[in-house]
Amino acid sequence: MTPRQIVEEWVKRFNTGDAALIADLYDENAINHQITQDAVEGRNSIQAMFAAEFEAAEMVCIPEIIHEAGDVAILEWRDPIGLRGCGFFTVKNDLIVFQRGYWDKLSFLKLHNLPLE
């Protein structure tokens, strides 16, 4: 699968809210670094991160555009309540090995009525 296809599948799985399903797209030693928090290393830790996030808030990813360049796909997204962001996915051997995400954490917390950290 191309990086774009992996990201398209990632969006489908993300929108199910199933942490185990989405974690299967990551390499065993993948790193997920959402710039608003510390990097998460390893598939199991990434699965735990998604499980906690899916439990805390109902999240929906609506792709605006997906760009692909070599082994990297870039996802510009929005959600139904007004949050916007961008994710960069490096894919090797049909698995995500590195992901970096940019989004406004303060807006996320306020829009989901979560405590400000």
Rank of each mutant, 00 (worst) to 15 (best):
E53C: 02
E64W: 00
A69R: 14
E28P: 07
G70Q: 05
V72R: 05
I46R: 02
D38N: 15
M49W: 04
G70A: 06
F50M: 01
V40P: 01
N44M: 12
N32S: 14
A39D: 01
G42F: 02
C61Q: 08
A51D: 02
E53L: 06
V72E: 04
I62N: 15
H33V: 08
A51V: 00
A51C: 01
A69Y: 11
Q47T: 09
R43L: 04
G42S: 06
E41Y: 08
A39Q: 01
A57N: 07
A39M: 03
S45N: 13
H33N: 15
M49V: 00
G42I: 02
N32V: 10
H67Q: 11
I31V: 15
G70V: 09
M59Q: 10
G70I: 09
E58M: 10
H33S: 11
D71M: 00
A56K: 08
I31Y: 03
F54D: 02
G70P: 08
S45Y: 03
I31P: 02
N44Q: 14
V60D: 07
E58G: 12
M49Y: 04
M59V: 14
A57R: 10
M49S: 05
A48F: 00
I46D: 01
F54P: 05
I46G: 02
E68D: 07
Q34F: 13
H33C: 11
M49C: 03
A56T: 06
A69C: 15
D38V: 07
E55L: 01
P63A: 09
I35H: 14
A56V: 03
H33R: 14
Q47W: 05
H67E: 11
I66V: 10
E64C: 03
A48R: 02
V40H: 02
A39G: 02
A52E: 10
N32P: 03
T36R: 12
I35P: 10
N44K: 13
N44E: 15
E68P: 06
A56L: 06
Q47N: 13
I35A: 13
F50K: 00
F50L: 00
I35M: 14
S45W: 00
A51K: 00
M49L: 11
R43P: 05
D71I: 00
M59P: 07
N32Q: 13
A69G: 13
E68C: 09
R43K: 15
V40T: 09
I46F: 02
A39N: 01
M49P: 01
E28M: 11
I46L: 01
E53R: 03
V60A: 10
A30W: 04
D38E: 12
V72Y: 05
E64A: 02
H33T: 08
E41F: 06
G42L: 01
S45M: 08
I35V: 15
Q47I: 03
R43M: 03
I31S: 09
H33Y: 12
N44R: 15
V72S: 04
E64M: 06
I46A: 01
E41I: 13
E55K: 07
D71K: 09
G70L: 06
N29V: 03
R43W: 05
E58I: 12
